[in-house]
Design a binder for these strands. Sequence first.
DNA 1: GCAAAAGTGTTGGAGATACACCCATGA
DNA 2: TCATGGGTGTATCTCCAACACTTTTGC
Lengths: 222, 222
Amino acid sequence: MTQTYYSEYNQFFVSVDCIIFGFENGKLHILLGKRKLTPGRGLWSLYGGFVNPAESLNAAAARVLYDLTGLNGIYMRQVGAYGEPKRDPGSRVISVAYCALINVADYDENLRRQYDLRWVEIDQLPTLYSDHETMVKDSHEMLQKHIFTEPLCFSLLPEMFTLTQLQKVVESILGKELDKRNFRKRIKQCPAIVGTGIIDKSSSRRGALLYSYDSSCTDFHL
Amino acid sequence: MTQTYYSEYNQFFVSVDCIIFGFENGKLHILLGKRKLTPGRGLWSLYGGFVNPAESLNAAAARVLYDLTGLNGIYMRQVGAYGEPKRDPGSRVISVAYCALINVADYDENLRRQYDLRWVEIDQLPTLYSDHETMVKDSHEMLQKHIFTEPLCFSLLPEMFTLTQLQKVVESILGKELDKRNFRKRIKQCPAIVGTGIIDKSSSRRGALLYSYDSSCTDFHL
DNA sequence: GCAAAAGTGTTGGAGATACACCCATGA
DNA sequence: TCATGGGTGTATCTCCAACACTTTTGC
């Protein structure tokens, strides 16, 4: 694209950074790696990438996520733009943060090892590169804020899940425990969460009913 | 700033666009102008500006608002980044939208005329340049979402205001009427809204008590 | 005295919270 | 038989919504 107009103005590198949430061992995790670019090489960091000329911000975020995980069609949400002049020590870079929620089981372990990435518990984060800690905090808050009104938690779970699993996911996002009976009462009032009739015997002797999320159902609420 | 690293990547124009809300004649308005730059010259548009090299996004937004209104220290909030490749017909421009709330009375009419800007009712918007309608819609929704939990409405009012004025502001933001008694009951439960003891006689024969917002009070809620 | 805005309480319903025990099964 | 996680109901409380009349005073 030629710069026909505006040529007297400055241009900037623009990147997208992905906050990728996953649920494992009853805890909320995010995917972190050691930064490979100079400057900041070796620091813990979110995974990101620069925006291409003909690509929307959303598309750039989806591409970066795909490159990293091989996953397509994942729900992503813009968290915000971060533009302090010195936020990147290398050059002026404006970054747009996106969060994504993935089911850890869908993510190829080999790919994870290949990129040398780690799942890190959300409340045990190391010091991160640049302003990435702010991005993580902001996206975590956004997640907490929308968890009851938008069908986000299912992205962190397999197709079918037990109510206990669902409750653990919600608890891990909120960072607090919930009452089991009240939680299940609410679930029953949500028509988008339906029992499958299948019993999962892997997590208990008695077995637990598996539920699934019906995305065609419009009125979701927990 | 030199482009020491990252030099193989592309750069982009980055602008900020301001959605400036004001309250007038019992209605919520936003400030619009006719676009002066080509392309799109003459179309109704938000006011914006390009980001400078050494300036944060927040600072750029504050500068643009100051240039336009002469107002400083106004609370602004990032709405989001907009980056469709064709969103600006002139060149690839990534824009970060900011909303601001100002008290119309603080804004110099001469300056408004000088820039040829208009206060337009939020529900009577004309067709806007590029994706500015999306920006306005997004920021209006953000405003509605946060109006009860953050002390935003006071930015639209003078230092001292009657409860009727406050209610009208909230109603104009929500786009619906509220019950007067329930509204006032809520106000009384908010320690940050305090009576001044001064009676305003301009709006009624009987006179109405003027209130003010105590920003040092931490727990705000309507 | 009347028009115009200010101010003021009560009630009912819905939804949230707190809380404890039995069930089914594999080992 | 016992350890483990699955599953269920009730009483209370809080919050929100609906609703109508009296007060003050300038004209």
